[in-house]
Write a protein that binds this DNA or RNA. Structure first.
Length: 520
DNA sequence: GGATCCGTTGTAGCT
DNA sequence: AAGCTACAACGGATC
């Protein structure tokens, strides 16, 4: 019996899955054992790594994957919880000498790279080969690109464009990223092999039954607008990209809004595909292909603001996160300027995280994040600038941690990259003195109903009857208006936590001072 | 080698 | 109402 363990890590899908395809098309493999390993808690202990929405999304994605494997292939996925080294060693041990190969997809995070090398070395003595499939969750082969002698860290859209041009052929619209793989024809999973692993003699310390995974998926909120899983991902790709070429061809990221007019306020103005891409429920290559198809023979926006531009920046951050040492830190990171941030301020951090800063636009965004696990990109700009160089002068790493725990599309490379950018500390950042206005809609002063005002009313119900003219800065409303809107500032909704203009000016000066103090 | 240009998405105030 | 200007002023690449 030749067993292949297919370890699902960054690809929670059946389509465009080179790992599963390799295993299913290899005649020497008699039995495929699909597995997923959940690491539930931090090494340090303390608070859970993933917030409720992230956990729920993950469990739903696994349930969907299992459903696909059962219905289409009469297979299943086995879920384990624990340290992957221990789990995999235990599986190999239980199956005696049958396991021939461990297959998985490439992951670029330092922790994962170290982990897979350790596992490879661990399995070698037992004659088990480890195969890692590159370029599965990115378009470029990250190791190949950064290993090239000519590689230089990209820091603009031009740079990443040049890199992609070097590795990919140009098609009629954008680069040719290769045809996404179809689903495997068959997945041979020998039932005895699976029974050994799910029975009492198997690695029962780690095994979690699918019923338990289902229970956890429904237990963790179910609040969110985004259900996890490949089925949902493909459906969303269809209705937000394939069926709406006009939307794709006119897409311009900076011009999108926090919310839709006359639509479900939970439906993003962007594609909302990010949670599916970050978990690997959806192939980024498939998204690229479908966007390029919509672009074909039609006028369309171009990178960097177009949809393909967004995917190109994703590649850029993946490259940087792999080539820049200490990508997730503010010291010994060549892409992070040394800034003397204020010390951790629990009151400020709590107000920010819980959406109680007294700035409705910021608070609406943070409450949306907490409830649904998602936030519009421009909102992420606003709240992260507000927390760091804009108003609160807190280290970007504190905000990064909150995003990492709560965002269902959290991605180590992208999350750190975006915080570096927005805190103004990276070589690819905007100049530090370009500070986002936390009360951004100037039209509101004309008492015009705006999309952002509708967004605030939805997420900050205290202000639901506040007139548009004052809704971005309700503390400026005369007391009669506060009374008639049934929202007294300082009682029903907080006073602003800081004076935004004073804080901005002070922080700009502090930022400049830090730059002068730390000239290399 | 100093000047100039440029950077995915700024703000405020004016017409 | 889109488009202009002034603001404040980084840092690397290019010429």
């Amino acid at each position: 019996m030749n067993v292949a363990i297919v370890w699902f890590r960054g690809l929670l899908r059946l389509h465009d899955n080179p790992v599963l395809n390799w295993a299913s098309s290899n005649d020497e493999i008699d039995s495929i054992v699909p597995i997923f390993i959940i690491e539930e808690s931090d090494d340090v202990g303390g608070r859970p790594l993933l917030g409720d929405n992230r956990m729920r999304f993950l469990y739903e994605s696994i349930v969907d994957l299992d459903k696909g494997l059962r219905e289409q292939y009469d297979s299943t996925i086995l879920v384990f919880s624990g340290d992957p080294r221990h789990v995999i060693a235990s599986i190999v041990h239980c199956l005696d000498s049958d396991v021939k190969v461990l297959l998985t997809d490439y992951r670029s995070e330092p922790k994962m790279r170290v982990g897979i090398t350790e596992i490879e070395n661990l399995l070698k003595p037992s004659g088990v080969e480890t195969m890692v499939f590159p370029a599965a969750s990115t378009i470029l082969d990250i190791e190949e690109v950064i290993g090239s002698e000519t590689y230089k860290n990209p820091k603009s859209s031009r740079d990443i464009d040049a890199i992609m041009r070097e590795y990919l052929d140009e098609g009629p619209d954008g680069y040719l990223v290769g045809e996404p793989l179809s689903k495997p024809v068959e997945v041979r999973s020998d039932s005895r092999t699976l029974e050994i692993l799910t029975g009492h003699t198997g690695p029962s310390d780690y095994y979690i039954e699918m019923d338990e995974v289902r229970r956890r998926a429904s237990e963790n909120g179910g609040q969110s607008y985004f259900p996890g899983g490949e089925s949902e991902a493909l459906e969303r790709l269809r209705c937000k990209v394939i069926d709406v070429p006009d939307f794709v061809n006119t897409f311009s990221k900076p011009d999108t809004f926090s919310t839709n007019e006359n639509q479900n306020p939970l439906e993003p103005t962007t594609t909302g595909l990010s949670p599916y891409i970050s978990t690997g429920c959806l192939s980024v290559r498939l998204v690229w292909t479908e966007v390029a198809r919509a672009n074909l023979n039609s006028e369309h926006t171009k990178p960097p603001q177009s949809l393909l531009g967004q995917l190109m920046f994703r590649e850029m951050f993946y490259l940087l996160s792999r080539s820049v040492e200490n990508w997730d830190d503010d010291i010994d990171n060549s892409n992070c300027k040394r800034i003397e941030w204020g010390s951790y301020d629990e009151a400020l951090m709590t107000a920010w995280e819980s959406g109680m800063t007294g700035y409705p636009y910021i608070d609406a965004m943070m409450r949306q994040l907490d409830t649904t696990g998602w936030m519009h990109h421009l909102g992420r700009h606003a709240v992260s600038c507000f927390l760091t160089r804009g108003q609160l002068w807190q280290n970007w790493k504190h905000g990064r941690d909150v995003f990492e725990r709560k965002l269902i599309d959290s991605d180590w490379a992208l999350n750190n990259g975006n915080w570096l950018w927005l805190a103004g500390v990276a070589p690819f950042s905007m100049p530090y003195y370009r500070v986002y206005n936390p009360c951004p809609d100037s039209r509101s002063s004309l008492n015009v109903e705006t999309r952002d005002a509708a967004f605030i009313r939805h997420w900050v119900p205290e202000l639901s009857t506040f007139p548009s003219r004052y809704i971005f800065e309700p503390h400026l409303a005369p007391i009669e208006i506060q009374r008639s809107s049934k929202c007294i500032i300082g009682e029903d909704y907080p006073e602003p936590i800081v004076n935004r203009n004073e804080a901005r000016k002070r922080n700009m000066a502090l930022f400049k001072e830090s730059l002068e103090n730390h000239v290399d």
